[in-house]
Simulated assay, not measured.
Amino acid sequence: MSQSLGKAIRILGRLGDGPATLDELASALGVHKTTVLRLLRTLAEEHFVFRDRGHRYHLGARVHELSSRGLDQREVRGIAGPHLAEFNREHGHTTHLSELVGTQVVYIDKLESHDHVRMASRIGLRAPVHSTAAGKVLVAELPAGELNDLLGVLTFAPATPNTITDSDAFRAELAQVRVQGWGQDREENEPSVNCIAAPVRDASGRAVAAVSVSVTNIVLSGERLLELIPSLLAVSERISRECGWRAITDSSRGRPA
């Protein structure tokens, strides 16, 4: 990769965290302002960045356009879309589709709730695996070696007083997720927000995405949210089947193994 291209990519990455001035970008990259300004001018010409009246740079329309196209090209997102829309129409709560990227989950689709309460989440936003229902679902069935590697680098930073901050406690939580086939977070990632999630599987049975439902306590209590688990499992299974997965019924438990 050329040095200029690498610096341009780093500029875009920094702006993904929020607007920044020329001085802030130069400091972040550790290069002279004239070099950063030259790259910014090229990026601005192609609409990858723009500068506001306060002389702060932002991600431009071209980035958002490519992001939208990239999301549309994700096969699981396209397959899940109609099912998520139907689920959202029926229940009316914020619905997400997420995937695992490194040690975080990334929201690749979102359907807003039908009430006036809006979640802070957005498509493209990343969230920790240890404090989210989707994260727990996506890492619960990782091979032992991959799970150990992941847990070895997690910082278990507390997002709320309810966040799991201990590796052993998180392992116990994942064991429960594997047994029951779904995960939850109880105000662990955001205060007053509860969430449940279920895996979307590919033909190999691997969890490639997670469908989740998030509600605030003022809309629905955590206990009432659990009543949606059968519907959540049903929609995640429908999506999984279209992704090529075929369940093997465990007759002793009366549900897919």
Rank of each mutant, 00 (worst) to 15 (best):
L97M: 04
H93A: 05
S231Y: 01
G54I: 06
A209M: 03
Q180I: 15
A257F: 15
H96L: 12
D202K: 05
G92S: 01
T42W: 10
K7Y: 15
H116S: 13
F87K: 05
W182P: 02
P199R: 05
S4Y: 01
R186K: 11
G181I: 03
V153F: 11
S113E: 01
V177E: 03
T42F: 14
H58E: 05
L66Q: 07
A28D: 09
K136I: 03
T216K: 11
S113M: 00
L39M: 12
R178C: 03
G78P: 04
I239M: 00
P230K: 05
H116L: 14
L233M: 07
L97N: 07
L111R: 13
E90Q: 12
R14A: 13
H93F: 07
G78F: 00
C195H: 01
Q3V: 14
L125Q: 12
V129H: 04
I79H: 04
V36T: 11
V208D: 05
D109I: 01
P158R: 07
Q176H: 11
D168N: 15
S98T: 15
L138M: 08
G152R: 08
V193G: 00
N217H: 12
H47Y: 13
T95K: 01
D149V: 14
N88R: 09
H32V: 14
V219D: 07
T132K: 00
R206I: 11
Q184D: 07
T249Y: 11
G222D: 02
T165P: 10
Q104N: 13
S221N: 00
E187N: 09
E141W: 09
H83N: 12
S240R: 03
P143Y: 10
H55L: 12
P199S: 04
G102F: 03
H55I: 14
I218A: 00
V117E: 02
A197C: 00
D250L: 10
R14W: 09
L225M: 02
S113W: 00
D23C: 10
G13L: 13
S204Y: 07
V31K: 06
T103M: 13
G16M: 00
E99P: 07
P158Q: 07
Y107K: 08
G60A: 00
G16V: 04
V31M: 06
A133L: 06
S167L: 10
H58F: 13
A120D: 09
E242S: 09
S212M: 01
S251D: 15
E99W: 12
L154E: 08
Q3L: 15
P161R: 06
R126G: 14
L138P: 12
V235K: 00
V139Q: 06
E86I: 11
H114E: 07
H114Y: 01
T163G: 04
K136Q: 06
G18R: 00
V105P: 06
N88T: 14
R41K: 13
S113A: 11
G78V: 05
R241K: 08
R126I: 07
K7T: 13
R38F: 13
L220E: 02
E90H: 12
F48K: 04
L97S: 11
M1D: 08
T160D: 08
I123P: 09
V179W: 10
P158G: 09
L29H: 08
A28I: 08
V200C: 10
I108V: 05
G254N: 02
P82W: 03
Q73I: 07
L37I: 08
S68R: 15
G30Y: 02
E227D: 14
N217Y: 08
R77M: 05
A198Q: 02
